[in-house]
Computed example of a mutant assay.
Amino acid sequence: MRSTSECWHVIESWLAANGVDDVLAEPAPDADIAAVEETVDVTLPESFCTFLQTHNGQTTDSRPLLRRFGLYSTSAIISEWKRMTDLLRDGTFEGRLDDFDERFGRPGPEVRDVWWNDQWIPFARDAGGNLLCIDLDPSPAGSQGQIIVVWHDMPTRPVRASSFAEWFQGYATAIEEGELVYSERTHSMMSNSEEH
């Protein structure tokens, strides 16, 4: 498996070769990463720490880099986590899963059967409010640190990878192999089939 640094190199090289500038932010200071861990009371996966130490999310006003998802900075991770966790603790999500019948599905067997878990670490968001999260409290059938999608209006919580390292490698490989391309139309990364 490629290292996180090698994956970043693939992405940085591709962006440079295709004239896509000013998308990635500067590295996150160690103190900012520590602030995320202290706020959430977790130890972040090493691969994710290296990810942030290379680029602390995206630059202000840049378009989404992960298909329709834009990367969060450490401060945005904390802000989003606090927002969702405050709603959880206020009881906003109580019974929310029961509002949906079986046609809409439920979190899969790898994910806790809840609307929000305070051990989910949001690291990317789309314009609709959907989140990519690192799941640090999976069900017994899941994997510690698996990557899940948290839909803002649907109860399913699909697993995208068993770890952040696996997910990031898959993203870098998709760019390298041309499965993902930068769309001048949307100013974001899209699958090649969507763009053509």
Rank of each mutant, 00 (worst) to 15 (best):
S5D: 15
S5H: 13
E6Q: 13
W8M: 04
H9G: 14
H9L: 13
S13R: 04
W14T: 11
W14C: 06
W14S: 11
W14Q: 10
W14F: 12
L15I: 00
A16F: 12
D21Y: 01
D21V: 05
D22E: 08
V23N: 00
A25S: 08
A25P: 00
E26G: 12
A28F: 06
I33N: 04
A35I: 09
V36F: 08
D41P: 09
L44P: 08
F51K: 00
L52C: 09
L52F: 08
T54R: 05
T54M: 02
G57E: 01
G57I: 00
Q58Y: 05
T59K: 00
T59A: 05
T59Q: 11
D61I: 05
S62P: 05
S62F: 07
S62I: 02
P64D: 05
G70F: 03
G70Q: 08
T74A: 10
T74C: 09
A76M: 11
E80K: 09
K82D: 15
K82C: 15
K82F: 10
R83T: 12
D86F: 06
D86W: 03
L87E: 14
L88H: 01
L88N: 02
L88K: 10
F93Y: 11
R96W: 15
D98Y: 14
D99W: 14
D99C: 15
F100K: 13
D101H: 06
D101V: 09
G105I: 03
G105Y: 10
G105V: 03
R106E: 08
P107A: 11
E110A: 15
V111Y: 07
R112A: 13
V114K: 11
N117H: 08
W120G: 03
P122H: 02
R125Y: 14
R125T: 15
R125E: 15
N130H: 14
L132P: 04
D135S: 04
L136K: 05
S139E: 09
S139P: 07
S139K: 06
P140E: 10
A141L: 07
G142E: 02
Q144G: 05
I147V: 03
V150P: 04
H152G: 06
D153M: 12
M154N: 15
T156Q: 15
V159Q: 09
V159T: 06
V159H: 09
R160A: 12
A161D: 04
S162A: 14
A165N: 05
A165F: 01
F168C: 05
F168I: 10
F168R: 09
F168N: 00
Q169D: 12
A172G: 04
T173A: 12
E179H: 05
S183Q: 00
E184L: 00
H187N: 10
H187S: 04
N192E: 05
S193V: 06
S193H: 02
S193D: 08
E194H: 08
